[in-house]
Design a protein around this nucleic acid. Sequence first.
DNA 1: AATGAATGAGAGTTCATTCAT
DNA 2: AATGAATGAACTCTCATTCAT
Lengths: 203, 203, 203, 203
Amino acid sequence: MAISKRVKKEQERKRRFILDAAKRLFVLEGFENVSMRRIAAEADYSPAAIYRYFRNKREILSHLRNEGFIKFGLRREQRSDSLPPAELLRQTGRSFLQFAMDNPDDFHLMFCTSCNEVDLEGELAAESLRSYERFRDMVGKVVASGYFGDVDDETVAFGLWAGVQGLASLVTSGRAKVFSESEVDELIERVLRFLRRPGGGGE
Amino acid sequence: MAISKRVKKEQERKRRFILDAAKRLFVLEGFENVSMRRIAAEADYSPAAIYRYFRNKREILSHLRNEGFIKFGLRREQRSDSLPPAELLRQTGRSFLQFAMDNPDDFHLMFCTSCNEVDLEGELAAESLRSYERFRDMVGKVVASGYFGDVDDETVAFGLWAGVQGLASLVTSGRAKVFSESEVDELIERVLRFLRRPGGGGE
Amino acid sequence: MAISKRVKKEQERKRRFILDAAKRLFVLEGFENVSMRRIAAEADYSPAAIYRYFRNKREILSHLRNEGFIKFGLRREQRSDSLPPAELLRQTGRSFLQFAMDNPDDFHLMFCTSCNEVDLEGELAAESLRSYERFRDMVGKVVASGYFGDVDDETVAFGLWAGVQGLASLVTSGRAKVFSESEVDELIERVLRFLRRPGGGGE
Amino acid sequence: MAISKRVKKEQERKRRFILDAAKRLFVLEGFENVSMRRIAAEADYSPAAIYRYFRNKREILSHLRNEGFIKFGLRREQRSDSLPPAELLRQTGRSFLQFAMDNPDDFHLMFCTSCNEVDLEGELAAESLRSYERFRDMVGKVVASGYFGDVDDETVAFGLWAGVQGLASLVTSGRAKVFSESEVDELIERVLRFLRRPGGGGE
DNA sequence: AATGAATGAGAGTTCATTCAT
DNA sequence: AATGAATGAACTCTCATTCAT
């Protein structure tokens, strides 16, 4: 038992090693520009060895993205859904920004990776889909509350999505590492102000 | 003379054809996923023929991007630099948004193309660098005017840059095609409000 | 015109060269044991060059087989279908044996190549299917004539098929090259006697 | 002692399991198309475990073929060599056909496997060589008896060999499973008639 | 006895690019 | 000006096989 456990841990450690090597390269050079050979070299393995741990190159990316979304999901688990909409948005925004700053590489893979390179189906896409559902749910609630004024879900969703992309570009450029807590809060307030229509209801 | 002129025009027409074919494919599938063969096929040429017009694949991208920046620059040439800062921003923003909506493909290549795929030096990068300089100049002027309050150039520059990326994602997703003129104006006002600090000076 | 004709001929010559190289190797070592690299080497080409002429490895085999069946079909074109059944069989048998002796490599690829390795659909399989249809037609006619006695099509078809396989093994072993014309005729008579049931009708 | 015996039996049981798994796959898909991994999976072993029982993939095939020839040899051990030639042929033919019908998989591996895939030397080829010797002996005797008329050994040997290949193709196609005893006898008579020359002596 | 881990070799295939014509 | 032909390098991925445990 103890032995098998240690073996499994060792196995997991090696998977991690490969995943980390791949993550570094993917972020630095882009999925298409990274070959299995280079991942193998970066992880000090033979190319063939990688295939003991992952079915193929796409699966490595899928794993990395899935891990990112799981990591992200854990942070938000404790959030109470009963908060007033503005507070819900603030809290979500805060955790989102914090996550981006703490995990710029995960963030990059989660939000900068184009659809061509990503498996949108299968077990490993599940967490990203769930994440998207949560996001749409939240948008729906806040819009329903009238907080943003007379506006449809989709507009808000796209506005926030654009914000995510903008943020992603800052994170990728290395700029977003330096936001202090108060800067984060201010940024969120600005985003809220940005999205609210004149006639939007109070909190 | 007249003949050579016609020949040159014909030559230019063919370059155009290749560039347009490449643009379509790059936007649709991403630089890495488009082969020279496919560009050639799309342009009804042999792969080898492309090389009479462009040194290599990267150069095609560089040309496209350069053209985009030139096209973009022309629009703004007539702008008077003596406008008050807020108005300068508004006008720039308007032309920028309009450009994005009118030329989504150019816009995509100009602002969604990752550094790995782009020549950052050389003649063909010049226009993009000039564009960036103008942008920084404008930011410098507006910041100097105190319009945004007590804030450094870089912060505003990065904020606007993030906005560009956000916009790019909307353009790419096809969402940004539908903005009406009044929506554009409203969006700009929001961006200004977004960027201004509480103590920012009036116009 | 003349030039383009010469060019096409040259092209065809090179295709031939590759096909012949592949044929030699396939017959000698078996489809699975021959790599594209080896075909290329045998034909004094780079591996990539092969792909200018053939889509992939299977297609080379398909071409070779198709050519074999076409070559085979040409031989039998002049045969008159109105012959009495026994004569029809004799003539077919003769041309078949002759073909096998004259073209042992084609024969090997046509009748010794397992289904796993062969495209059974598509244009390049057409000739083999037609060949099979003709064969079944002939069997049908001869059986209907009562020549073989009270026996169903399938039994005769399988019997002849088994004969083909047996012959193929002789051809492959190099033994069948030595049959003289009279030996061929005798062999055919024996096959007919072999297949006829006691109560079979006369010619 | 008793323990070591049990251990050996267990070992033998596992060898059997691997061999049977390999046999199924080889027959179904062809030697080249079956990987050690798949044999291992089919036998519920790890790939590496196979190598404790067999030196390599070829050796598995050699073992299977050898077993086939041994099984085949056992059947014929009791045959009396003093029979008249025709009767000897009949008996051999009968046991041969029966073997093919009872053990189509063994039969397939024994007679459909191409030379490239087979070890023709070494201990494991011994039984097949012995089988071939017996066969040649028998042919020699029968030819010497004048039964087939004025014909040399090799011609008869090759004729029968071609018959074996033909039969093999029927067995492989699943057609030969249905021969009744009387059909077997009739088939043998036909083969004898097929091989006899007009001037062949009586029994 | 059995296996997980690992690898070198090589498979088929595609690519950007060059060059003689 | 344009292309057909050609290639070296690289790709993803699979294989039979070995070895420490």
